[in-house]
Design a binder for these strands. Sequence first.
RNA 1: GGCGCGUUCGUCUAGGGGUCUAGGACGCUGGCCUUUCACGCCGGUAACACGGGUUCGAAUCCCGUACGCGCUACCA
Length: 498
Amino acid sequence: MTDVRVRFAPSPTGLLHIGGLRTALYNYLFARRHGGAFVLRVEDTDRERFVEEAEQDILDALAWAGLSYDEGPRIGGPFGSYYQSERKSIYKAYVDRLLAEGHAYYAFDTPDELQAMRDRLTTAENPNPRYDAETRVAMQNGFTMPPADVRARVEGGEAYVVRLNVPAGQAIQFNDIVRGTVVFQSNEVDDQVLMKSDGMPTYHMANVVDDHLMHISHIVRGEEWLSSTPKHILLYRALGWEPPQTAHLPLILSPNGGKLSKRNADKMGIPVNVRQYRELGYEPEALVNYLALLGWNPGIEQEVFSLDELVGVFSLERIGKAGTQYSADKMNWFNQQHLRRLDDSTLAHRVRPDLEAAGLTANDAYVQRVAGLMKDRVTFLRELATTWRFFFEEPAGYDPDGVAKRWKADSPALLEAYAVRLEALPDFTAAACEEQLRLLGEERGAGAGRIIHPVRLAVSGITHGPSLFEMLETLGRDTCVRRLRLAISRLPAPSDAE
RNA sequence: GGCGCGUUCGUCUAGGGGUCUAGGACGCUGGCCUUUCACGCCGGUAACACGGGUUCGAAUCCCGUACGCGCUACCA
């Protein structure tokens, strides 16, 4: 195989979508797997749809996901610029060459004229008339106008576009890595605009020129581009270049099988922009893992992978062909899985902003302990700052159902006795806390549950959570003793208890 | 409409002519563990779109049908 060079080529027209991130991911994995280069190229040829903050969002999303690139914006590289808007003169040179060699031609039709042509030709059987060998003869272009007129118009500064002269009757065949052999007929493709009247290249032109100039070996992109591939092949042929290999990825569908558009997804409460995942508190490792498996599988039973592990097993050959439906349940499951795999210091670091936002403070060592204790019982790290905030502040109240069920007439006395014992403990460990509790139970003739449940309630305010004794150890002696007495003072003993 | 692509449990998928009474994961669900809640473990539920071929034999190969998706711009 020749040197692997792949690219992710987003358009800065909005926030990066998870479909885009998946495309970037597959490119990244393929490049890293083969020791190749991963290039980032900004396809900003559409001035109309350009969104100022989009580029930063894309960069942020890739960095968050851990996808580093070897050449591209900000860092440059040997084939820059990596902004298509800065490469106008390059495209112009190749457009001129196509013009000179008869592979392209000038066209002067105004938008109104184009519309009129389409209106005239549109029928029920042909809802989308092409601008092609058949129809161009009725339009204003290099085929229908004397060369001198064409030259005069161009030199006179009149608005024009350059179109590809699509040859008639050719079969355009290519071998897609995921789809196999695909064939199109040149008669089905229209005379694609290569250069717009504002002097910008179209996607097709810029894409082909850049992929060639940047020595791209494999094009890995979404299936929505499959139908444009014949146009690109025609361009490669006209320019005398060898087209890169292609791999067209199956599309990510919404949970009901439709398109996962922003609008559609919002209605179902599904986040589609990478930024949303970040804001919602998903771990980047989880999104990456989930996206990797959406349309690809390693052929082994393992499902939970780090980015580096994915690099080790990725291959384009194992990409599926069928569109794939998004599942929030599975996404969340991956988040839970990765939470358990991440080390406590990483978790502590990541949950910090959530704690701060919730007005909670704690030193790092303590946050790490809490994270370690809780990581296999949460789906989102930020639950530490909500459901489990009692680790960081006194319980605001006590779960009423828990009180009704667990807070008995003898609870205050038992808890006070337990508090006294905890105060006297030489080593405040989970094992010691448990030993004392059981001893106390025996002495008072009360079952351990008679103490365990009220203690949990007093200390956390709720009736569920991690192992009681580990929780006590984590909270620390002072906090435990204080909270036991706080509960005694706040919760009156029920008089009718048995 | 045309062209292209696709179709295995609800979802993500394994499988590529016999080893498939179709395997795994998510979800849902029964139980075990745990004097809490999770985790974990054991079990259950549930699929080869349909119709024709080819073959001794088809989820696997071929054709057709249906359905879905994509493209059909001076957007990418």
